Amino acid sequence: MAVPSPTYEERLKAYEGRAAAVAGVGKDPVNEPMIRHWCEAMGDTNPAYAGPDAMAPPTMLQVWTMGGLSGHTGRSEAYDELFALLDGAGYTSVVATDCEQEYLRPLRPGDEITFDAMIESVSGRKTTKLGTGHFVTTRMDVRAGEELAGTHRFRILKYAPAQSKQRKRTEQPGPKDRSNPKSRRPRPVINRDNAGFWEGVARHQLLIQRCSGCEALRFPWLPGCNACGCLEWDTVEASGDGTVYSYVVMHHPPFPAFDPPYAVGLVELSEGVRMVSNVVGVPYDKVRIGMPVRLEFQRYDEELELPVFRPGGTGEGGGG
């Protein structure tokens, strides 16, 4: 009796549990220069990351596994095969959706990094605002010597864009046609670590985490304190005043939900933490570093409301 050929979904599921990388070796040991560059880029002055007893910021976990332009040896063919299968089915676009990290041991300069990765899950067919496709989750176990230091999960969506069907340009919805679902802004990824923040946004509150141990404020939200390691926290509500610490002007790509050029600011709140958001109510070429801004909540459609910043408030402006 002939054995029926596996269905497409069964072929995808067959990749779950298969290795994506085997016995990978970090290109460099954990080292002080890379830690310093990371901390400077992030504006993180935690003394735990400097000096003779320095540790690497936990969020650098994936950094030590990156292969650079030359890649890594030990890469499995399974990942490439899975991508080829998805590409062949028309899911040719890819977007990173979220990642999760678990820290088990601090990494310190001199630690030699090894890692193994596996395809943890391939979802069934999902329809999203971007298009229809499959979520692929890869799990990477990162080791210092023989000791497990942490786990990194990375999730992507391989999809066929929702607007991939050929249509006349005159039929395309305009960038401000908010009644059409295809022109709506992408939704934020909400998980167990940041759900409280978005619940606050729904109440028109901008909530900042506060460590219950050292009372350090932190943003964006994290499962634990990056200053003392405490896992307990509460929140404080931001006053809404801030200044533009830095900014960029976005010209591309022209997604239907956006109308470039527009300014995206790194706003330093009066409480001392920084967040990324749109600067509205002023021409993009008039945004300046040091400009005082004030929080407001802007509705984009019936489901999405986001915190943005408008010139004003009590912050002190500066040059730029």
Results as ranks from 00 to 15, higher is better:
residue 110 G to I: 05
residue 112 E to I: 12
residue 129 K to G: 14
residue 152 H to T: 07
residue 98 D to N: 13
residue 85 L to E: 07
residue 164 S to A: 11
residue 98 D to Q: 12
residue 115 F to K: 01
residue 84 A to T: 09
residue 167 R to M: 11
residue 170 T to Q: 10
residue 165 K to W: 15
residue 129 K to R: 11
residue 128 T to C: 04
residue 138 T to Y: 05
residue 108 R to T: 10
residue 91 Y to G: 08
residue 107 L to C: 08
residue 146 E to R: 10
residue 174 G to Y: 03
residue 109 P to I: 01
residue 133 G to F: 02
residue 104 L to P: 06
residue 151 T to L: 10
residue 160 A to I: 15
residue 121 S to C: 00
residue 88 G to Y: 04
residue 114 T to K: 07
residue 93 S to C: 11
residue 100 E to Y: 14
residue 110 G to C: 02
residue 158 K to C: 10
residue 133 G to C: 08
residue 110 G to Y: 02
residue 166 Q to K: 13
residue 110 G to P: 01
residue 126 K to Q: 12
residue 166 Q to R: 15
residue 134 H to I: 01
residue 132 T to A: 09
residue 144 A to F: 01
residue 87 D to W: 14
residue 104 L to I: 09
residue 178 R to F: 07
residue 124 G to W: 03
residue 138 T to R: 06
residue 113 I to G: 01
residue 164 S to M: 13
residue 113 I to C: 03
residue 127 T to H: 13
residue 168 K to S: 14
residue 147 E to S: 11
residue 130 L to Y: 04
residue 132 T to E: 09
residue 123 S to A: 00
residue 153 R to C: 02
residue 108 R to N: 09
residue 150 G to N: 06
residue 156 I to M: 15
residue 88 G to D: 08
residue 123 S to H: 00
residue 128 T to K: 07
residue 132 T to Q: 04
residue 102 E to N: 13
residue 106 P to F: 03
residue 167 R to S: 11
residue 151 T to R: 10
residue 94 V to E: 13
residue 173 P to T: 01
residue 95 V to F: 06
residue 162 A to M: 11
residue 174 G to L: 08
residue 173 P to H: 02
residue 137 T to R: 03
residue 152 H to E: 08
residue 98 D to R: 09
residue 172 Q to H: 10
residue 189 V to N: 09
residue 112 E to N: 12
residue 114 T to M: 05
residue 81 E to G: 06
residue 131 G to W: 03
residue 185 R to V: 08
